[in-house]
Design a protein around this nucleic acid. Sequence first.
RNA 1: GGUCGCGUAGCUCAAUUGGUUAGAGCGCCGCCCUGUCACGGCGGAGGUUGCGAGUUCGAGCCUCGUCGCGACCGCCA
Length: 591
Amino acid sequence: MSTYRTHHCAELRLSHAGSEVTLSGWVASRRDHGGLVFVDLRDREGLTQVVFDPQNLPGSHDLRSEDVVRVRGKVAARPEGTANPKLATGEIEVHALTLDVLNRSETPPWPLDEENVNEDLRLQYRYLDLRRPRMTRHLRLRHAVASAVRAHLDGEGFVEIETPMLFKSTPEGAREYLVPSRVHPGLFYALPQSPQQFKQLLMVAGIERYYQMARCFRDEDLRADRQPEFTQIDLEMSFIEREDLYRLVEGMMRRVWKTALGVDLAIPFPRLSFREAMDTFGSDKPDRRFAMRLVDLTDAFRASAFKVFAGAVAAGGVVKAINAKGFADATQGQIDLLTEHAKAAGAKGLAWIKVEGGAWKSPIVKFFSDAEKAALAERLAVEEGDLILFAADAWAPACDVLGKLRTILAEILRKLGKLRIPENTWDFLWVVDFPLMTFDRDSQRHVSTHHPFTAPVPEDVPLLKTDPTKVRGQHYDLVLNGVELGGGSIRIHQPEVQRMVFEDVLKIPKEIADSRFGYLVKALSFGAPPHGGIAVGFDRLCAILCGAESIREVIAFPKNAKAQDLMTNSPGEAEPRQLRDLRIQAAKPQG
RNA sequence: GGUCGCGUAGCUCAAUUGGUUAGAGCGCCGCCCUGUCACGGCGGAGGUUGCGAGUUCGAGCCUCGUCGCGACCGCCA
């Protein structure tokens, strides 16, 4: 038995009354009555009230927040009327017989029970921040989720395999962290953005089912849900089709939700094509917990007197609208704000109608015919108090604009109490049938919508050379409550198809394709099995399960928004000697 | 790189139109207190209002610059 404890601080109950126990932990709070001292002793499990008689234990007067102590004492039922129903151990207390101060604590820089505190400070003293029960809960939930994932994948025959952190620079995609090689001066490794290529090589190696809690690195600007290093549940399987993978991930998520929240998720998750998602929600990661669907009005305004609409249709575009129910009382400022967002999303302006006092108030409604008004009223189910917002443009930008407005409106209406987004609703879905290629106007060439290893849908392969943007990829995104949780694809496993994508479709010069991806194409040529996989954002997953706003809340030692670690003060300068060894000269910023 | 927001005591926040010596709660220090659990009582310490200029008789408040932090946009195959 430990000399430090016989029980933890959330363990003792009335049934223990009379027994002698030893507890160790931190002083969470003290209430010194002079002749009697109460201390809430905290360990990772919870709180226990310890009662000291300072005549016998004078040191109890000197206890301070966060001192580490060991207490031996007798468990006693609390006197009549003094039980604390807020504590699991609230029926009892420990009457201290001995007190050992194992370590003193400086006064904490902020009261640890204060939730709303400057994040700088929390990150600078992260070890104190993590003592708080909420953060302890986050880390332990994260562990429980990781365990559930491992248990599930183990049960499905997966093998956990580590892949290198020191990888090769592949300049496509996210900016990478470069690592200089001392042995090869002037040459660099890169930290992996994901183990993508290795997991495919493991399939060629015949592993068949691989997974890894993979640390990934991206040297891009940060967000609340983005860190320079983050963790993915990364997995890959051979001899599967998309549906096989959906089933696997659905089972895994079901297990995770059961473990973490005790919730039975409904599976299978619905599937929505990219086209349909954009068309009805204006997003490839739609939050369907609220309606506010995009409605198509193209045919109704084909011949409209309102030239903005008719013109868009004539140019091959669409007219679409959404109904922000109950927002007819939007202020001019709010309309302006929405217009700003619409413009930022690529719209030229924002047409709107307020339905107030039985009338349609709008700068544009005078152009509408009765038939057009009737179509509007019917398709948007227009009622008193509604605010209708329009987009008239080519299909993709029109959907995009309204999709962004939809998200913003939902947030505004939710705050105003006009839209209720149900809590504890887990709206999972698969978004599928993405276009394999997107035409990039800047570089005037086709780029992979996701990555160049995604296999085309078999029946679309003939279009690869003729009309690449029409080719659907076997890519899938896992979406939860409007958050992209993960994505993956069935990969190309025939070397000639992979080579064609690199050279004929993406127009990557042969030498570059060879030097960057030659080993992969070569590997495919040695009997690569059909395979595919997915990467699920583990930090985001944990944040959602914890109800946290930011993934920083579920990472033990995260970086701040400037990618710094405020506790260790990194990044920091390197010694001149280190730089000399690496043959690197730091170009100091001006000033 | 851009837009917006924030920066006042250790922490969370006040400070009327630009006007006296910048306040409160918590925390901290000292004394008192045997049933508290947001313990209570009395007393005390603690401030370059992020920094620098400017306007003004006078700036926490206005202007400009700068630094820091955050959110978003760009970016994230």
